[in-house]
Design a protein around this nucleic acid. Structure first.
Lengths: 150, 150
DNA sequence: ATAAAATAAATTGTACACAATTAAATATAA
DNA sequence: TTATATTTAATTGTGTACAATTTATTTTAT
């Protein structure tokens, strides 16, 4: 981030990449909160549902890899979604270690209601369409990099 | 994010802006965790310290505005930093409502140790310098937009 | 001057997030 | 085959994060 000189400046908030990343993520998720509450989901639950809507049934493990969450976070989230009636959690007979997550009819139906959710950002983020595409691309590229180590 | 057609695609993870934002923020903060642990800070505590290093003493309120955190989050974080001996928390005599946060000698000294922290990202994020600058700029612009409403 | 409004922190309750550990099941190797 | 290693979830403990409420203090309007 700091090209050559000014090593003394690295600890200024304005020079950090991580801070706007952290703050922006929080603020954007905050915008989603209200519309999501109307359909009975938290943001984390919404991401889980999006994966299931797109890819269908899936083990807890695969689900966690897709959305960068481990069982410590995912297990309680999935139990809540089960209690809400949106997903089922069943041990595979072929391998009792894996918990298979599947959508209920209610969970599939929720997708229709969720289609308006992304519009919550309209007008809240003052970026042009091209800027959003660029931002999304850079974030995905950065995200890829973090997969390897760690 | 979705320009014209394909409204049915908005709920795919790959088409979302918010998801890579959320995931990337988490992954990057995770990279900071170990080096920060060595100097006795969490990421949130690190942000607080950066603000104090840069701007000096500050009320809890102003601090919270700078880093987008309210008292519900900030009060316990500041109490931990106080317990660690890095900051002081004192009610202003002029206005007993405001808690003034100031650095202790130990807190000021910590800045030297922290100077190597940003290097933790080196090699972990596969973006060029120019891409990082672009990303930082777009994130800050997006962040600005969220200030207004909400 | 004093009641009402506003402000700043603290508190309460819910929901992640993650490192580290544990437990159960399956795969592998000697 | 049977002891060992690996894999998948669940559990435990700590630390945010935030909405909503409460408390104490200060302003403001009457």
């Amino acid at each position: 981030m700091v090209k050559s000189a000014d090593k003394s400046e690295v600890l200024k908030l304005g020079n950090q990449l991580c801070f706007p990343l952290y703050a922006c993520a929080k603020e954007v998720i905050k915008i989603y909160r209200k519309p999501l509450e109307k359909i009975g989901l938290t943001y984390t639950q919404y991401i889980v549902m999006m994966v299931l809507w797109e890819f269908g049934n899936m083990s807890e493990k695969s689900l966690g890899e897709k959305i960068y969450l481990d069982s410590g976070t995912l297990t309680p989230v999935l139990k809540k979604l089960e209690k809400s009636g949106f997903v089922r959690r069943e041990r595979l007979k072929a391998d009792e270690r894996v918990v298979q997550i599947s959508l209920t009819a209610s969970g599939r139906k929720l997708k229709e209601k969720a289609k308006t959710i992304p519009q919550a950002l309209d007008g809240c983020i003052h970026l042009s369409y091209d800027e959003m595409i660029t931002l999304k691309g850079l974030l995905n590229k950065a995200l890829e990099g973090t997969r390897e180590k760690h």
